[in-house]
Amino acid sequence: MTTTTRFTTERRPLLARVGRGLRTPGGAIFVLLAILLVGLFLYNPSLGDPGQFMRFLGRTAPILIVALGQYFVIVSGEIDLSMAAIIAAQVVLAGNLIGQDASRILPVVLLMALLALVVGLLNGVLTTLFRVPSFIATLGTALVVSGITFYATGGAPSGNPVDSFREIGRGGIDKVPVFGFVPYSTIVLAVLVVLALVLMRRPFGRMLLAVGDNARMTALAGASVWWLRTRAFILSAFASTIAAIVLVGYAGVSPVVGQGYQFIAITAVILGGVVLGGGRGWVLSAIAAAFALEVLFSLLDFIGVQSTWRPAVQGVIILVALGVPLLRFTRRRSQTLRSNRPNK
């Protein structure tokens, strides 16, 4: 039972709230990120240089953007496994259709947006209206999309978009005070993060959390559950597309670009305290977790751990991030079940 304090509209002091927040999984990730960054700077002092650091951040931008998209889907109670397939498809699309003709950039980007819309809509409709579990539905669309991509390319890297398009992922603004060099990808990232933060404070974002928490209640509150979730899938597909545009810049065109990104994104989102099954978690924590993972992998690189260990490390992180809160949750729930039965 709760203590009977009268309801007040006053919020607690900022410091107290931050202190409390740091003890939640979504807050602890910032502490972890800070520790990892200190480690990174110790092993590679050159990254302490703001320009170098911005380049590093720029390289991680695609993953962070993908995590951002995955956040919307997971928080609404679903999961999106089609992100890597969309990235590859978009990269191939951009590489082959834009070619060396800069005037084609705009129409091709619009085409890519259309593809994202279609795949996102398909994922959403399959999951919500046709009640296919999102795990299966998005796996299905992923296989279809990457199947077509492989067919179109014959599995080999092909196509190379004009340099002005690749600049988005590769270039940046030089001679910026303090940083020296700011990659475009970090600017894209920053804009998206701000947009996401705003979106999560809008009615749409709040209802998305509510759907993930209790879809039945949300439906009875007059919300359109299928459309809320479908929009999350569309956002996720758009995030993949933007990540693809950035990736074309430095990774080149290949049907395997972006492979495994969705799993890093899912790992990150969970590590950021976003509960699988929805209804809980802060978008900034998910981003921070994605960055923390990238820092961790670089750190492991510097220490001399072979990159082939990466999936195993990632797996352990998923198991711990997912398992520990789950254990705590089931323990707490079995306690409340015992003491909280209705007295009918």
Binding site: R206, M207, L209, D213, M217, T218, L220, A221, G279
Partner: peptide, 24 residues
């Protein structure tokens, strides 16, 4: 608990849920 509230959301978010869903 099953149909009236999203238990993991705040007092304010729950109180505003119907307004947000129908008349944002």
């Amino acid at each position: 608990k099953a149909t009236g509230l999203a238990l993991g959301q705040s007092v304010l978010d729950n109180a505003l849920s119907v307004v947000r869903a129908t008349t944002p």
